[in-house]
């Protein structure tokens, strides 16, 4: 494995930088490191957080304190981390999950579908077809519990955010914000164009793991009818 680039995040974090741009190669490395840390966490490691081009690892400076008071806890932890990861081969492709997310597009669940289609000179059906016609990659989970940062939105339906953000967006709302698409797991304010809604719960605090999606998953949006939405919503309760 090539030399790794590290830098501190405050006094209890270390950032492992794996690339300068968002690409598949960097993503594969991040997934391999995440999988490794999941299975073999270092002692004194609090947790790890995968990003687009980084993996941030939180550690306990007390656990990595140099008894002689010479070396920095940060340097000691970095050396141990580097030593561990050196043995890691990035060729081992991890198993990739594909998660289908049912979405009722348009109508009361997707109040901005009309506007999005008009903006691009497409029909609503064409927008749905494009949005549900491909798999998206989950780069990371953040912003809110269970919120996936998805990569892969077709440029043909990339749409600027609403000029006036909504004060409350229903949980499960599927939106487009610029070149990004995503699902709001919780009721929250937001400026994305809402084109549909899923009956699936993306954040489940009572379950382990609490997030339906994980970094590295592939996501497909599957169009469903309003009746089907209602039915699934009932079952989910």
């Amino acid at each position: 494995m090539e030399r790794l680039e590290f830098f501190p995040l405050g006094d209890a974090g270390i950032v492992l930088k794996l690339g300068d741009v968002i690409d598949e190669q960097t993503r594969q490395k991040i997934m391999a490191i995440s999988a490794y840390l999941e299975q073999q966490p270092l002692s004194g490691m609090t947790e790890y957080v995968p990003g687009y081009t980084t993996v941030t690892i939180y550690y306990d400076p007390l656990a990595w304190r140099d008894p002689l008071g010479q070396e920095l806890a940060y340097d000691r932890f970095q050396a141990a981390l580097e030593n561990q990861l050196r043995q890691l081969s990035f060729s081992a492709a991890s198993e990739q999950r594909v998660v289908d997310i049912p979405v009722c597009y348009g109508g009361q669940y997707g109040p901005d579908l009309q506007e999005v289609s008009e903006y691009h000179g497409l029909t609503q059906e064409e927008v749905i077809q494009i949005h549900s016609g491909q798999a998206y990659i989950v780069h990371m989970i953040g912003f809110a519990p269970g919120f996936p940062y998805l990569g892969g939105l077709d440029k043909r339906i990339a749409t600027p955010r609403r000029s006036t953000p909504r004060t409350a967006i229903a949980p499960g709302s599927v939106g487009i914000g610029g070149a990004q698409t995503g699902v709001y797991p919780l009721e929250s304010p937001g400026g994305w164009q809402i084109i549909g809604r899923t009956p699936e719960r993306l954040f489940r605090p009572e379950e382990h793991p609490p997030s339906l999606l994980r970094a590295g998953d592939r996501v497909r949006f599957v169009p469903i009818s309003a009746a089907e939405y209602e039915q699934r919503k009932q079952v989910g309760r």
Binding site: S34, E47, A144, G146, P209, S211, A215
Partner: peptide, 10 residues
């Protein structure tokens, strides 16, 4: 609540 930040949990 540590250990769940990778799931977006504060």
């Amino acid at each position: 609540r540590y250990g769940y930040q990778r799931h977006g949990v504060h």
